[in-house]
Design a protein around this nucleic acid. Structure first.
Lengths: 106, 106
DNA sequence: GCAACATATCATGATATGATGATATGTCAA
DNA sequence: TTGACATATCATCATATCATGATATGTTGC
């Protein structure tokens, strides 16, 4: 027996692959990778602090944060005037770490 | 002391982040994720076999393969009329596995 | 209410990426 | 050398993404 998926058994289906790809698209951006790294190392932070650490304009940073939040990668919590962001999906950190490994096969 | 990068120490520099992001951009596509999964599970294969397994048109598949090859994610070897592709950068597989994990934090 | 601050959203033009169909190149066998 | 097969590349159009600057919303303290 040889179906179209015989060598792809166990792979996510089309809809799930589309979801995985859409999350990866968000991570596939240098500034957003920096945001993930910053939040991993420095912990949760309000936007203006991230602005200082990462050297973004306010509008651009806010859009990056909101995209990642809507995708579930980050979570946000308002504390008074500030909104504190932190990592909500550990796959963001995992992917960053994966990418920083050596690429060679063992 | 509090520099702009004090909470980002150890993160890759801007050029390296751009390189990581460009590799992730390639993986951030459902069809290319399927190609990685197929090559991981079924091993190296010529293009026409991938075409059958993955249900792509020839031109589209060839372009995906070549993009990933140029980025070093895949490698290609000609055997007679055929060109056999296989995975060259294990990060491709790692990222796919990362993405298939549960997203919840422990 | 108003001022000051923190964050979010919008509008726009520039650039990148993707799908498709056509065409070109390379390899082998007869 | 010709034909058949395998793969690569090209041209084009449609769509998505990005950066930027302007503007809007929400929060607090006075």
């Amino acid at each position: 027996m040889k179906t179209k998926t015989s060598r792809c058994a166990g792979l996510p289906d089309a809809a799930e692959l589309e979801r995985l790809a859409s999350v990866l698209r968000l991570l596939a951006h240098p500034e957003r990778l920096r945001i993930v790294g910053r939040l991993e190392r420095g912990g949760a932070a309000p936007v203006h602090e991230l602005m200082g650490d990462l050297d973004h304009t306010q509008g651009a940073l806010s859009q990056h944060l909101n995209h990642m939040k809507r995708a579930g990668l980050l979570q946000a919590e308002r504390r008074g005037k500030e909104v504190w962001y932190s990592i909500a999906d550990r796959r963001a950190v995992s992917v960053l770490h994966c990418m920083c490994c050596k690429k060679e096969n063992p």
